[in-house]
Design a protein around this nucleic acid. Structure first.
Lengths: 239, 239
DNA sequence: TGGAGGTAGGAGGTCAGACCACTGAAGCAA
DNA sequence: TTGCTTCAGTGGTCTGACCTCCTACCTCCA
């Protein structure tokens, strides 16, 4: 065993070795074998594994094994769930955030997407399907891809985390809005992106998110965060 | 020992008991004593403690003890640091996000702040001080309080996480912008909030963040996310 | 008197090996 | 075929020992 000339905590070193060496395998070896191979005790290895599980890099299943995954939104989602325990309030704030962020994402995507990205978006859009069971993951994937194309990991991460906590809500929303109408809204967004029309994509996405919010089983408070008034009288309040 | 009639993982139960019973004490008892008191082994307790440390609820110090803290932005910040290892790119994306989020926060704060909140904001503003060492934390606190007043924990959490990873940058920024000018910008934001002028607060904050970005030691790419043009033609985009 | 250095205790960190609890699949029985 | 049982392998928990680090106190010298 190289014994490793580290100085800091052993667990940190184990985490690093694990994420380097086992990034592209589906399962980690059993704890006992792995601890022997790494030359550390099972306790230290377990602490490292647990840490990486919370970080969304591993998934431990009792009696089965340790799966290698990559869900960086997991810790963010867990934090949000802890900070907003009340379901109604959580969904309200999520709606506010989406109303602010999704249009910005759409604008950035329109202004940054190249031919490859446009094709990928179009492909994801056409996967929307005809039943709710197909539509919900396809819808999530469409928005996720859009965020990726927009090129901002922070916003992308936040939207993923939110999506993970409101999957059920989106199913209900999609049902109320109707698959055909939702597809039409996505279509308008895509078209704006393919024109490279940032403002158009922004507006189309804003309409899409607004429609979703109005169909959602929530009171519709005056959401001031987005700040783009629907029609008129935005400057009226300024003295 | 109550032995507790749980079925799920023991560590979960320990986490719950810890966060319930030791929420308002500065330090946890030593691991050995605590594990005895809870009736669990030291290993199980350690896993629980480690978990809560990653969640930003505890802070373990080798040779000293376990401190009780409350930094929900810690896991988000860690995730962002992992997802954006390149410092320049990280700061670029942070600037984009702030350009989008901070003005929205300011608008919401203006439209939601009551007398108490306005007083608190004014007080935080006046703590800006005259030296950089005082100004940086005061500036952070001002923006944090603003996010709190705005009433959206998701955005507040995101901005806190970002702030934790760019504290040094903000010092440099403040230095370049100048304390007097920064204070004047804050003042304009506060005044708009005290008038209940959401659009004014939005505009003032946008100017503030733009000034910061232009003073920052970064290339200034065409940041499309904010999308609000400086002076005119904001409503033109909405059909 | 007061600071520099050493020292002992107590804190978390790591180790080893044992046993418990859960899962899935193979094997058996109706 | 179907359903139950068994069993081997996995992670989960326990114990108690030892290592490493930090702090506070104490000693000693200027």
């Amino acid at each position: 065993m190289p014994a490793s000339l580290r100085r800091g905590p052993l667990v940190d070193a184990i985490c690093e070795r694990l994420s380097r060496q086992y990034r592209s395998v589906p399962w980690l070896p059993p704890e006992r074998a792995l601890s022997a191979r790494l030359g550390v005790s099972r306790s230290a290895l377990r602490e490292a594994v647990q840490r990486m599980e919370i970080q969304g890099l591993l998934e431990v299943k009792h009696g089965v094994g340790v799966r290698v995954v990559n869900k960086p939104q997991a810790p963010v989602g867990a934090t949000l769930a802890r900070e907003l325990p009340d379901l109604t309030e959580r969904l309200r704030q999520f709606a506010e955030v989406r109303l602010l962020v999704e249009p910005a994402i759409a604008r950035a995507a329109a202004e940054r997407a190249g031919p490859a990205e446009r094709a990928a978006l179009r492909a994801a859009h056409e996967r929307l399907g005809t039943t709710l069971d197909e539509a919900v993951p396809a819808d999530l994937e469409f928005h996720r891809l859009l965020a990726e194309v927009a090129g901002n990991r922070v916003l992308s991460l936040m939207l993923s985390s939110i999506a993970g906590l409101e999957a059920e809500t989106r199913r209900i929303t999609l049902e109320h809005v109707g698959l055909v109408e939702a597809a039409a809204q996505h279509d308008r967004i895509i078209e704006a992106i393919e024109r490279g029309d940032g403002d158009g994509a922004h507006a189309a996405m804003l309409a899409h998110v607004r429609a979703a919010r109005e169909a959602a089983p929530l009171p519709t408070p005056a959401s001031t965060l987005a700040g783009t008034r629907a029609t008129k009288a935005s400057a009226a309040r300024v003295p």
